[in-house]
């Protein structure tokens, strides 16, 4: 069983009257890639800031690598790297100078590490160009390079593919997979590009309004993002009652346009359509579909 490296218990963070985090609990296992998903203001960055030591929780407990005290958490952070909100960058310095400053700050003795990480993120040819003149994508890459400098065991990345072109997104995705596969680096990644997360993550944490809405493994989410039947009739309300009473189908969702989605009893569609007809309900639409991650995310955040 994988070692638990982060254990968050009932974490709260209050800014004035606003609860940024409200009793958040989750665990992160070694070797996982966790997608932290939620709309703007959901609490994703707040969680990352607390993990990074930038913010202090109002209540609850944060345990990282077995430590809960300040000294222990600081020591745990030496095994981690973070990229939260703005990437690490001094605008008037070149990429190489930025990494050298980071190298000195972290006490990394090997100067060759700078060339290694520049090559990994494809910034080895920036020369004397200062960061101020970098594109957004280049700045993101530099931020990732800084995050990789100390050869971390655990990376916490806030929207790391923000600003990257499609080619860059694929490159970075492959890099993350490689780091996870070959060096067993654990990652927590927040992103709005859900399709990318679905190609990468082993676990998902959905958060909204400071509360955890769901924690799933990739397999569990795949099941949750399951097949369903879309039913549209001339009397959807009556149809919903019949489905419940006659077939015991409880997982029925009424969509904004009034149509119904049913997630259970999919093998009984023939009997269902017959029952509806016999009860004077005319099915206008009956189609098989699948929930994708975006649909599931929208459903989660609406709750």
């Amino acid at each position: 069983m994988s070692e638990t490296i982060v254990d968050v218990k009932n974490l709260t963070k209050q800014y004035g009257q606003q609860m940024a985090l409200d009793g958040v609990s989750f665990q992160i296992k070694k070797g996982s890639i966790v997608g932290l998903i939620g709309p703007n203001g959901a609490g994703k960055t707040t969680i990352m800031k607390i993990m990074g030591g930038l913010a202090f929780p109002t209540g609850g407990e944060l345990e990282m690598y077995g430590a809960t005290d300040e000294k222990g958490l600081n020591h745990a952070r030496t095994r981690m790297s973070f990229m939260i909100e703005t990437p690490y960058e001094k605008e008037k310095m070149t990429a190489r100078e930025n990494l050298e400053k980071q190298r000195l700050q972290k006490g990394i003795p090997d100067k060759n590490r700078i060339d290694e990480v520049l090559k990994i993120v494809n910034l080895q040819n920036t020369g004397k160009k200062i960061v101020k003149n970098f594109s957004l994508g280049m700045r993101q890459r530099l931020g990732l390079a800084n995050a990789l400098m100390g050869k971390p065991e655990f990376m916490v990345l806030d929207e790391p593919i923000n600003g990257l072109d499609p080619e860059g997104i694929v490159e970075i995705r492959e890099l993350f997979r490689k780091l996870n596969r070959e060096e067993n680096i654990t990652m927590v990644i927040s992103s709005h590009i859900l399709s990318e997360l679905s190609l990468l993550c082993t676990d998902y944490i959905f958060i909204n309004h400071g509360k955890i809405k769901g924690v799933f493994t990739a397999d569990e989410l795949k099941q949750a993002c399951s097949e369903f039947y879309r039913i549209n009739t001339d009397n959807n309300e009556k149809a919903s009652a019949i489905l419940l009473q006659h077939f015991g189908i409880e997982r029925i969702e009424t969509m904004e346009d009034g149509s119904l989605r049913i997630y259970d009893g999919l093998e009984k569609m023939h009997e269902i359509s017959k029952a509806l007809y016999e009860n004077g309900i005319i099915p206008v639409e009956l189609s098989k579909n699948e929930v994708n991650l975006e649909d599931y995310y929208m459903k989660m955040v609406r709750e």
Partner: peptide, 18 residues
Amino acid sequence: GDGGDKVINYEIMAGHSR
């Protein structure tokens, strides 16, 4: 000087004590 560009935050996140 490292406050405006948040570089100082990365010193905290690197595990150095405040």
